[in-house]
Amino acid sequence: MKLAAAVLLIFTLVAFAAPAIAPYDPRATPQSETQKNLAPTASHPFGTDQFSRDVLSRVIYGARVSLGVATLAVLLALTLGAAVGSLAGYAGGWTDSICMRLVDAMLSVPRVLLLLVLVATTGPLTVPGIILLLGLTGWATTSRLIRAEVRQLKERDFVLASRATGTPEWRVFVTHVLPGIIPQILVSATIALATVIPLEAGLSFLGLGVQPPTASWGNIISDAAERPGDAWWVVLFPGLAIVCTVLAVNTIGERLRIQFDARSAARTARRDPIS
């Protein structure tokens, strides 16, 4: 847990301080003919790619893009998910039915497929475009969890009592229900993060995500996909960065779940992200 938090903290710092840390300009192709596809050495600890760019610097700058995209997309997805989930759960009735059918439809399409279709209709994406797409496709799971939580909270004595005394609905919601769903939102955040980081990497790997020359962990890897096997360093290091981040997020998420959600063991594993 501590280790996981430390990993995330370090990666975040690296992302923020990228210009200060990176040994080279991640886009510079100084010796495009002689210095390309170099194995790791002291001057290039992670080697160089096919354009002679320093892979370490690209991974460092890639942290900015990959983590930034993931964080913002998750924020968007959580906001949407919490809003829809709260609305459906609290209002009930028709609103609930309509929202949940929409959620059913969203969840019935594998997210990768949905993203493929969206990318097919938009063409190569800008970074804000990717954030938007990942956010817009990621809220359904969250909203379902939040809805369940809100429905439970709604029936609790203190909420019923508060409503009985004539407190306005919005006020009941803000004072009694909202605080109750925050743990669920935190747990959802870790699930969403652990899903979005590999997704962004996967899309970029397929050439459909962040577009070069901007570096993201996914497209650093896809830059190397043209070199069969012999430029392993271009795949391994960004790959490790992805795995470490997601593992750290998963570890923290698991701890949070145990802490906040000890009641229902069965629900825990159901949310294991593997896609």
Partner: peptide, 16 residues
Amino acid sequence: PASSAPRQSFAVLIQE
């Protein structure tokens, strides 16, 4: 064009 790897490579190097 997004579909052409060599043209993208050239573009990156020309930019520099």
